[in-house]
Design a protein around this nucleic acid. Structure first.
Length: 527
RNA sequence: GGGCCGCUAGCUCAGCUGGUAGAGCAACGCCCUUUUAAGGCGUGGGUCACAGGUCCGAAUCCUGUGCGGCUCACCA
């Protein structure tokens, strides 16, 4: 590979090369990601998933077989009731339970953890992400990790030493590298008292002050604490790559200690990369959990088509923080994506370096790398599309009818885009941006002289709108104002009032043409 | 206290394995005597936080300083 190629490489390709370099040339690589579904899995968590997906795709394109596993850490403790969950007082009673044993008050699934999981599992295929899901609650509760737990117990002192390196307070003398959910209460308010050197573990339930001895080969109650659990799973699955947030990948963070602990399990740490958090812009705090506003993948998919959702992440270095916008920036995002697409299809000339870079971003943004579009999308600015949609009150078929020379594949993509645009107009667009054509039951009350001007204007529209250009027709707007003794601003205001019940609107001449004389006349002739 | 990140045009940011700065928005002007957050063309605007260093050459690499932020040191 030449140096030149390297310069224009995408971060996912660079990471794939790094994995191959550090892990050796293997026929198959295991890429992992995971999270505790202790609340809504938000778009920040999605960044880790899409990061793995992009690296996995880059590896596959280099001819490697890739296993992409996604670990749901649903045997973690329920510590806090998120603010966006229904029936908080019921959930309150289940604090300190494993989240898999907490009821789902949203009615989405059989338990709390599962409810948060299904939301994500339903949306990931839409953006072309198909991991193999691993459910840690099931793994632990069916004793899949019994040997690993026994190993951890036997390496108690070595593990303690590693963890103590970064702690302000050393772990207590009676600390054990295992957590126990009480079989009496399901809560983790327990303390390990003894281990028989094999599979027998004795713990005390601190709430009830009762003791019990369990067999880690048969009990569903044990689990490893995070800093031991993570490296254990690296070893168990043979993980080659797993990214992490900056909370994990800081000195003394869990990646650091796990890197040492994993050796005790006879394996090496995976290649990693750090990703930064995602901010939100213009969401207006509609959904709130633990204080801040939250958006999940489905919120983003509502206003951006899948390939643009991917584009947001593909085009940004993972180490950089960025904001996902719900406000007017949405327009720019669509324009940026379309621009990248035009570069890919050679509709815009750029230098070779930029073309390579943008083209790679375009490819990686596509949901299915086996089905990259063979032609660019229908060229219509997002703003324009929003106005057409509003003229036709969201009727996609009518908008399509107005567009010349649209192909089948373009129509398919445009319909997705229209759904997003419509959702955006409805939920997030600023008021000035929105309008709807007046209906008969909410007519502007015109004075007699205004009505006369409107009727005259209607005749101009009837005679000239279709035949003349936007600019040429403008003359008639001014002429009509003058003929009726009105100041221009007043006349424009009048027409906007009549058409859309607002004082202002899109640039009038162009707007009239976009509406078409038929629709305009239908409204004007009510006067 | 440790670690990390950021500091580039009024705003939001791109550019970063070095070759005398870019985009969008905002501003201003013109097309059009003329409403407009839907048009077109154009203009202005930055000692790239600061100080050193390496280099023919630094926004880009190194060192230090300042300011802002995040994170670990509890749990996951």
């Amino acid at each position: 590979m030449s140096e030149k190629d390297n310069q224009s490489m995408h971060w996912a390709d660079i990471m794939a090369d790094k994995i191959i370099r550090e892990k050796g040339d293997k026929p198959r690589y295991t890429c992992a990601s995971g999270i505790t579904p202790s609340g809504t899995v938000h778009i920040g968590n999605f960044r880790e998933i899409i990061t793995v997906e992009l690296v996995a795709r880059a590896l596959r394109e280099k001819g490697k077989d890739v296993r992409f596993i996604y670990s749901w850490d649903d045997y973690d403790v329920f510590r806090k009731v998120p603010k966006n969950m229904p029936e908080p007082e019921l959930l309150e009673k289940y604090l300190r339970y494993p989240i898999t044993l907490v009821p789902d008050t949203t009615g989405r699934a059989e338990n709390y953890a599962r409810g948060n999981e299904v939301a994500v599992e339903n949306d990931l295929p839409k953006v072309g992400v198909f991991p193999e899901y691993i459910y840690q609650a099931e793994r632990y509760r069916t004793n899949v990790y019994a040997e690993e737990i026994r190993k951890a117990l036997s390496m108690r002192e070595e593990i303690r030493e590693i963890l103590n390196q970064y702690r302000t307070e050393p772990l207590a003398d009676d600390w054990w590298p295992v957590a126990v959910f009480s079989s009496f209460t399901n809560k983790d308010n327990t303390k390990v008292i003894a281990w028989d050197g094999e599979y027998g573990l004795t713990y005390r339930d601190l709430d009830l002050d009762k003791e019990e001895t369990i067999d880690i080969r048969t009990t569903p109650n044990t689990k490893l604490p995070w800093r031991v659990d993570w490296p254990m799973r690296w070893a168990y699955e043979g993980v080659d790559f797993e990214p992490g947030g900056k909370d994990h990948l800081t000195e003394g963070g869990s990646y650091d200690t796990a890197k040492s602990v994993v050796k005790l399990f006879g394996a090496e740490a995976p290649v990693t990369m750090r990703y930064d958090f995602i901010k939100l812009k213009g969401k207006g705090g509609k959904i709130s959990s633990s204080g801040g506003e939250v958006a999940d993948l489905s919120d983003v998919l509502e206003i951006y088509p899948p390939e643009i959702v991917r584009y947001l992440f593909v085009g940004t270095r993972p180490s950089a923080e960025f904001a996902i916008s719900f406000d007017l920036d949405v327009l720019k995002i669509y324009e940026d994506y379309d621009n990248t697409e035009r570069i890919y299809f050679g509709l815009i000339q750029t230098n070779e370096k930029k073309k390579e870079k943008e083209s790679r971003i375009y490819e990686l943004s596509q949901v299915d790398d086996k089905a990259i579009p063979s032609e660019p999308g229908y060229q219509i600015p997002f703003r324009h599309l929003c106005n057409y949609l509003q003229i036709y009150a969201g009727d996609q078929d009518k908008v399509i009818e107005r567009l010349d020379g649209i192909t089948e594949s373009q129509e398919k993509r445009l319909r997705v885009r229209m759904s997003c645009a419509w959702a955006w107009l409805d939920k997030y667009a600023p008021e000035e941006f929105r309008f709807s054509l007046s209906s008969e039951d909410c007519m502007y009350k015109a004075t007699e002289s205004e009505a006369k001007a409107i009727r005259e204007f209607a005749s101009y529209v009837d005679e000239h709108l279709d035949a003349l250009s936007e600019k040429e027709f403008s003359e008639y707007i001014y002429k009509c104002a003058a003929d009726n003794g009105m100041e221009n601003p007043d006349f424009f205001r009048l027409i906007y009032q009549v058409l859309i019940n607002k004082e202002k609107g899109p640039k009038l001449a162009g707007f009239l043409k976009a509406c078409g004389s038929e629709k305009v006349l239908e409204i004007l002739r009510r006067y």
